[in-house]
Simulated assay, not measured.
Amino acid sequence: MVDRPNKPSALSATPGLPAQAQVNITHGSQKVTAVLPTGESVEILLYGATVISWKDKKGAEKLWLSEATKLDGSKAVRGGIPLVFPVFGPPPPNHATSKLPQHGFARTSRWEFLGKSTSESESSEGGADLSVKLDFGLSSASLDPQTKALWGYAFNLIYSVTLGTGSLTTSLVVTNDDERPFDLQVLLHTYFRIDDITAVTVKGLEGASYVDKVDAKKEKTQSAEVKFVGETDRVYTPVGGPSAPVEIVQGGKTVFSVVRDNLNDVVVWNPWSEKAAAMGDFAPKDGYKNMVCVEAGSVRGWQTLEPGDAFEGAQTITISG
């Protein structure tokens, strides 16, 4: 991880060794970057453990990041994959999370980089597919006193980001280290980069019940593919369960496929023109045309975690085509 100026040159050029993923900590130990030999890359800020970039082997960016977002730890990142925990949206009154800011504190806390691991599997073409897993940790012991005062439970979070050839997996393990049970919600708030929101549909939500947050939180049922003609903010519970893929289709072609593990809900969001214009950290103001959020989570209700128990949820995003 740390460059050694007197490192023997033979270590980086030993004959017969397969190419390895390159992992570096940069920007004053503020960001972790991983690059596969095939060219795929990912960048994660230690602030919020927020994934801010994911590029395919051709160098094409797959995540949308606001040009006006702050990356210095002064404010939650607008774009990439912010991590929502332990509450989604504005906290409800008379609840243990009621004093917390919207979307909780995980996305605005400084995480610790715990290390990397690599794996290799045989691909269908007979070669080897290399992946690298980056682990990050956050616990109640590392929170600032102000945050502890808002939500005083003892907990431990392990967040893993796994970069593969054509895929990205993000997973979170929550452990209750307290003597009391606590409620939690989790959301992987993924901003996908697209070409044109009016040419995009989302498949895999047909028949699902959802809460329409743009229409007074009415309960509705999705009859067909999701299309975008204005502000969209919906919380779905897909009928096929987490293992059934939710696909982002652009111009009739699937560009992303999302499969969930133990995350029953999917939030679909696009602010459209008026709301984008009202957000100070959203830029360019017409950037809503080039992004769509399809977010895996557990947010329609609460997960109650008993002392000593753990909750784990994950998503795997695959690039199509």
Rank of each mutant, 00 (worst) to 15 (best):
S74I: 01
R78D: 02
V51L: 15
R78N: 06
V87G: 02
A96M: 14
P101Y: 10
K70G: 02
G80I: 08
P93M: 01
P86H: 09
G80D: 04
E43K: 11
Y47P: 02
K58I: 00
S98A: 15
K58N: 13
P82D: 07
D56C: 04
E43V: 04
K55P: 04
W64I: 05
D72F: 10
F85C: 02
V87E: 06
E43N: 12
K75N: 10
T97S: 13
T50R: 08
W64A: 10
N94V: 08
H95R: 12
L83G: 00
L46H: 01
A96S: 15
V87C: 09
W64K: 04
T50D: 08
L83T: 12
E67I: 00
G73R: 11
F88P: 03
V77I: 15
V84P: 08
F88R: 05
T50N: 14
W64Q: 04
G48E: 10
S53K: 14
D56T: 01
L71M: 13
S66P: 01
L63T: 05
S53F: 09
K99C: 01
W64D: 08
L65N: 06
V87F: 03
K99H: 08
P82E: 09
A96N: 05
H103L: 03
F88M: 04
I52T: 15
K55T: 15
N94I: 01
S53G: 11
D72E: 11
K75V: 01
E67G: 11
A76N: 11
N94Y: 11
A49V: 10
P93V: 12
A60Y: 00
P93I: 06
D56V: 03
I52H: 05
P90N: 14
A68N: 13
V77K: 05
A68S: 14
E43A: 15
L65D: 06
F85I: 05
V77S: 08
S53M: 09
G73F: 11
I81D: 00
P101C: 11
L71N: 05
A76Y: 00
I81F: 03
K62M: 12
T50M: 07
E61F: 11
S66C: 03
L45H: 03
P86V: 07
K70Y: 05
